[in-house]
Nucleic acid binder design. Structure first.
Lengths: 195, 195, 195, 195
DNA sequence: GATGAATGAGGCTTCATTCAT
DNA sequence: AATGAATGAAGCCTCATTCAT
């Protein structure tokens, strides 16, 4: 797919860099085109409009992001390990690509309501993944059996998201990955059936 | 105070309504002025510019929001009760003013980086309030003594914020306040020293 | 007259200072009012509108300017002396009041066509004064008898005006009054019947 | 050059016409664009902002104006002839393009201080040209050897400028070119070494 | 497929002037 | 006579999108 549409990927990569460097409102189509080494009009051969570029950035990047997390968690044996892996992968991937972290945590959130709905659609599989880990944990009796899955998912995602956003805004002045054990302990503590 | 600056408050109230109805990007100064029943230019007698109106909306509304929470929690005897009250007040206040919920959870987040920094400044006291509840709980031995206060605060705020945002985006199709006990159970479970 | 309308004169004096300090476009009515120690609305009790303030500044200041020149030249015996006195007075008065020089040479020229026509009207008596000196010089046979009075007046006024404007724009880095003899020599050279 | 930048020149020409017809303050960008037969935004492909359009009008037009004068004077043998040619060219060029005369003599002078400084920069070569004629005349002993070149230049430019401005304001009710001999006589009279 | 010059709608802000007190 | 809060018209500029080449 990448080799089939080299321009498409050039534009996606350029968009991430340009948005990370200039912010959402400073990322004009012409700037992205220039960074991608194509003409302005070429963008419109591969994308319906500017919003489509941004949605696609999110789709491509978060698609990979989520895929890798799912892949890693699937290798783990129980819900607690899967949750730890999910946190680890969430933090490590965004740690490894700071441009992407800026774009997903700060810049794309400045988009309008329509784009935000699209973004939510892209996140769906990630949220489903969290849901199934929670359900699995309940079945495994690792987690309390009376958990409200939706609320737990919102807690988990809200917590991770808030932590990463703070880390990005603090300009990564501390290490994100080293927080994994504590975060894992907090979240399993909330869910745990052990008392 | 309200009677001292009637126009100022008219404009703030109008801004909330207009932004809730039209979205951040659909809220032109002229629309806010019209809704407030004043001339466009009058806005600039009370605010430096459009951004200042938006910051002030957040300051005024979140100021009251936070103040009421602090007031209520201060009447409670221990950290667990304080946390429950904080959750209760957070949910009930936004439940009671759906326009405000739309504005704070969805629309004002579309603002530029500068405005977002201002918003963070306004939120500071709320985050401090959470911190002191956590610390109090640790002193009271209700919470584990080895908690990382920053992480816990990010978990609590991230969780509440994500829950409310989802509720707003789902167009309040379910009741927010009835979720308080479960959310409180989850969070205290995460923090609790009891095992 | 000054004692009869103290506010009127306060406003005129304030206008000169404000325009000299802030430039034509930086001199809002409210700034002039503040400098004069009156309310904005008070300006409109003494002047028809802002343009009327500016015209009046010019009228009052240039009225005095011209009057003093006429007074001084009238004491001189012949056209050559009168011309020297006119140059001397023109330069010395503007040298003595740098604010006024800025206002008349630079700032008020940025006004619109209508105001400029008013300004020309105010200058009329000065131009007439020049005319009569030229005519007197011709009668006295000091000047050539075939002079085109209009052209000569334009030469004299254009020369003095250009010299003062340059001096103001150079921020009075040299002395204006010491140029009088040379300027007088040039102009009388142009007019002189002696060959 | 004209064919290389057709839009650029269309806009310059349109600006002269629009300013001559509507005055400096009545010349909105949209009016200039319409007169040039381009979209408003097109202006900004060729000019940084509105001020840049006006500066460019002056640069282009006065550039040609000055070049033609320099070209003509260079063919003359002595300073007196050069001065006559300079006056002739100054008057004839502005006579031939009344729109340009209105723009340079009346409208562009209403511009702000920044634009005026730019205008002065453009005029520099013209003033230098005058200076060198004066110096040449002194070397040729046609002019007095003790002339203050700066003052003489200010006299010459101030005189010509005042004459043209009056002619424009009088709506060209008389012929400008026929005044050349008299003006030349006056100015050479001022400078002449013959006594 | 690729280009990039051209388009044109849309909104924040200033400030001279008014008028109720 | 004096105030000053309120008015509201008016214009520069950006930038997503198109389309002739």
């Amino acid at each position: 797919m990448k080799n089939n549409k080299p321009k498409y990927n050039q534009i996606i990569e350029a968009a991430v860099k340009v948005i990370a460097a200039n912010g959402y409102h400073g990322s004009q189509v012409s700037k992205i085109a220039k960074a991608a080494g194509v003409a302005d009009g070429t963008i419109y051969l591969y994308f319906k409009n500017k919003e489509d570029v941004l949605v696609s950035v999110f789709e491509e990047k978060m698609g990979q992001f989520i895929e890798k997390i799912a892949e890693s968690t699937s290798k783990k044996q129980n819900a607690e390990e899967k949750l730890r892996t999910l946190i680890e992968m969430h933090f490590s991937q965004l740690s490894a690509d700071y441009d992407l972290a800026i774009v997903t945590q700060l810049e794309l959130r400045q988009s309008n309501y329509a784009l935000r709905l699209q973004i939510n659609k892209v996140l769906k599989p990630y949220l489903k993944e969290i849901d199934s880990i929670v359900k699995e944990g309940m079945e495994e009796k690792l987690f309390r059996s009376d958990l409200n899955v939706r609320l737990v998912r919102q807690m988990i995602f809200g917590t991770l998201d808030e932590i990463v956003t703070n880390w990005v805004m603090k300009e990564q002045k501390y290490d994100l990955i080293s927080q994994v054990p504590e975060v894992h302990a907090l979240l399993t503590g909330a869910l745990s059936s052990a008392r």
